[in-house]
Each structure stands twice: as structure tokens, then as C-alpha cells.
Write a protein that binds this DNA or RNA. Structure first.
Lengths: 230, 230
DNA sequence: GGTTGTGAAACACTTCACAGCC
DNA sequence: GGCTGTGAAGTGTTTCACAACC
């Protein structure tokens, strides 16, 4: 379930504040969802709540982490060390949440050898070696659009079955490989669409069959990338 | 409809290749969706196809752009000029697709005054002035987590009604303000979850009520951020 | 009294399949 | 013959509302 990570984040912040127990109502508010939905989601993991009391924060954190597979470490390689690749490499939540960056790779000789967030940038030619030697299971593609599909083909050939794609292309991959994409321009376009509606813009009345956007983002929606300050 | 930007991208790339007309089947394949879904989506905009022939690429690009509000320019401010803010500022697709970056702001005196992608970083104190003077309608928050809510409150108070949030927090905003978020760690966690399933990992059999993930990403899912190479 | 867990209803979205049109 | 546009069926998700429980 794609909402579990959101609950997990909310629980972590409750944990940091020393909260021991939480009701579905409170947790739902913190996560920005409806409480019935939260209870139904959690009930799929098992009965981890106590009627009349709520959920024990620590126990729930453990159960959700386990469900998401965060009790084991996942090895990640970041391909493309532009500004975005750097932002990703420097992302603190990476290391602390079960993800280990095993390699930063780039095709540009000028960045190869650079030290970024404690890692040395390696040449893209090392891709297969690094994937195999470190047991990389998730590849993050932060290359320009043209390079994305070839890079994807190579990581898949080397055995990677999960890809997070930041390049503005639809990657094609064989059956059994998961791709998720994060796309700024699409987010902006969706905001522009809503904005136009609010303003009663030029299209306001010309497409009445679209109701106003009622919900928030759909489930499973990609969420933040990073928040690095210089 | 959150898939329109995806269709638009596919159409643009067809246009670049000189294709004049496209069937729902072809366009659906390029966008990674089912052709019936695509036809239904497009039919909401009006009858822009020709039976027996398909859709005229150029006309459809115009109609979708209009529906999304891309025929007018949207003014964007980016708050937080870390690696991510820089990546966003340098994103080419920004300017070319109806979005104009009117300001880069940061609280850190060391970055204020820096020139990035043709813009000068301004101090966060100028936030309200910049929003008003340039008519900013979309704010992109790329600050550290702690700063996100205060910054959000300020942009909303200054009249912004659309926010794209990259900080790992759930922002609270008044009714009528749209927030979308992009979250790397959530994407990674979802990939880890799938990965664990494939491997028949430790949880493989303990939660059978979750079927295998059948679909791809849900509609409206955030997509790529950037693809900058150094 | 308070809160969970969950059937049942409501709703939304996707896919099928074919009539209608070029 | 080929392809769109769309009613109808199918599937999945969200919300309601309340019994079961602490």
C-alpha cells in the first residue's frame, strides 16, 4: 500500500516528540488522510491497535517498516551526477531509512573522481561492476533524457529490477522490472490546471464535464525529493 | 485529468519526429496507458479525433495545452537554493512550457546574490515583494523540512494558491490552496516494498491479503524532476 | 466512554465491446 | 476496413456506520 510510507513518516515524527500511543484520528490528521481509510489500511497488516486506546507508536513503526521491507538494507546506485544527482546523494533520509548509496556514476570525465557526500563519482563504464559487486537492487536515473533508456537497459541487464526515473521519458523495461518516475513538469502542469480553474480562467466554462478536483493527490503519488540548502 | 501532461509529452515527441496524425493505440503505447482509457480521457475534452483516421497531433497538442492552462504563462518562485533548488532552476522544460521562474530565494546569506541559470538569488525577506511584483502564482518549496511550513504560510499570506512541496512534511494550508508534494524517500520505499515481494522476502507469505501490485503508478502520480548533468 | 476493525454502501476508475462514422 | 466515442460491465477504492472490545 502506497500510503504506508506516509504513515511511517508521521509515526517517526510522533516518536521523536515522545508520543507513545496514537489514535487513528490523530495519526490520520498528521498524515493528511481520513481516519477510516487509515484504519482500513492498518487492518491489512494485522490487528495492531487496541480498541478504546489506539495504536502503540513504536510497535506500529516496526510493523510498517517490516511490511515495507525496511528492516533490511537496500543498496542504491545513482546514475547522473548533475545538480539533481548531488541533491539525491546528499539526502540524509537516505542512509537513515534502510537505503545505502553504493555508487555515484556519471559519463562526464569532469565529474568522475569528484567527492560528493562522502562518495567518489565513478565512470559509467563501471556500472555493471558496481551493481554486481555491491548487490545494487535499486537504480536511480538522474541523467539527461537521451541517456535514460540506454542506462536503464544496462542496469536491467546487470540484474537491477527496480528503477526510479527522473528523466522525462517513459522507460520501457521487461516484465518483472518496476519503474517509478518523478516528473516536475507534470506536477507543475497539474497545479497550473487547478490554478486556471480557480481563476475562472479562459477555459473555466468550456469543459464543464470535468468537475472541480475534489480529492487531494491520488494514492501512491510521488512525494518529496529532497530539501537541501546550500 | 492528471494524465493529460503525459499525453502532451508524448505528443510533443511525436511532433518533433514530424508525425502528423496518431491513433489512440499508438499514442497510448507512447504514454504507457491503455488505449480505451486514452480515448475516454480525450473524449472529455471534446471530439478531436477522426474515426478511421486518428488524432491530428498538432491540434491535439493545442487542445490539451489549452485545457491545462499552458496557453498562458505561469510565474513561479523557487524558495530554497540548495542542490535541488539549483536543479529546478536549471530545468530547461520550465521556461519552454509556460512556466517562468521569477525568483530564486534563500535564507542563507552565503548564497544570496549568487547567479544561477541567469537569475540572481534573493534574500527570503524579499519573498512578499517578489510575489506581488511579479504576480507569482506557484511557489516551489525546496527548503529544509523545518523551514517549509513557515515559508508556506508566508507565500499563502502573500496570495499564492498553488504550492509544490519538496520538503518532507505535510503542509497545512487554508481551503482553496493546492499543495502537491514530491517525495523521494516515499518512492524508494514503494520500490523496496515491490522488490521485497519479488524476492519472496521475509514477509512474502505473511500478508497474503495484499495481492501483487498489478498496475503501474496511479494516475496523477508525480513524475520526473529534472535531469541535469554537471 | 472511547476507539478499533469491518461489513455494506457509495463512489470512482478502468476495461470491454461495439455502434457509429470516416 | 479502420478507428473513435461511449454505454455498460467490471474492478478497485473510499466512506459510512456500527458491533466488538478495552
Amino acid at each position: 500500500m502506497a500510503r504506508l510510507p506516509v504513515y511511517l513518516r508521521a509515526l517517526h515524527s510522533l516518536q521523536d516528540r515522545g508520543t507513545a500511543t496514537v489514535s487513528s484520528e490523530e495519526l490520520a490528521a498528521a498524515a493528511g488522510v481520513n481516519s477510516a481509510k487509515l484504519r482500513k489500511d492498518l487492518s491489512h497488516l494485522g490487528s495492531y491497535g487496541t480498541r478504546g486506546v489506539g495504536y502503540e507508536v513504536q510497535y506500529l513503526v516496526y510493523q510498517i517498516s517490516r511490511e515495507l521491507g525496511l528492516t533490511q538494507d537496500w543498496v542504491v546506485a545513482i546514475i547522473g551526477v548533475g545538480n539533481l544527482g548531488r541533491a539525491l546523494a546528499g539526502y540524509g533520509g537516505f542512509a537513515s531509512r534502510g537505503f545505502r548509496v553504493a555508487g555515484l556514476l556519471d559519463a562526464d570525465a569532469r565529474v568522475v573522481g569528484a567527492h560528493i557526500s562522502g562518495l567518489t563519482v565513478e565512470h559509467i563504464d563501471e556500472l555493471e561492476t558496481i551493481i554486481k559487486d555491491h548487490g545494487v537492487s535499486i537504480a536511480v536515473i538522474a541523467t539527461p533524457a537521451e541517456a535514460a533508456q540506454p542506462v536503464c537497459d544496462r542496469v536491467v541487464a546487470a540484474g537491477v529490477t527496480s528503477v526510479l526515473n527522473f528523466a522525462p521519458v517513459v522507460l520501457s523495461v521487461p516484465e518483472g522490472v518496476d519503474v517509478r518516475k518523478v516528473d516536475l513538469s507534470i506536477e507543475l502542469q497539474i497545479l497550473a490546471f487547478h490554478e486556471q480553474r480557480k481563476a475562472g480562467g479562459p477555459m473555466g466554462d468550456l469543459a464543464p464535464e470535468y468537475g472541480p478536483f475534489k480529492g487531494d493527490q491520488p494514492p501512491g503519488t510521488a512525494q518529496y525529493i529532497e530539501a537541501v540548502d546550500a
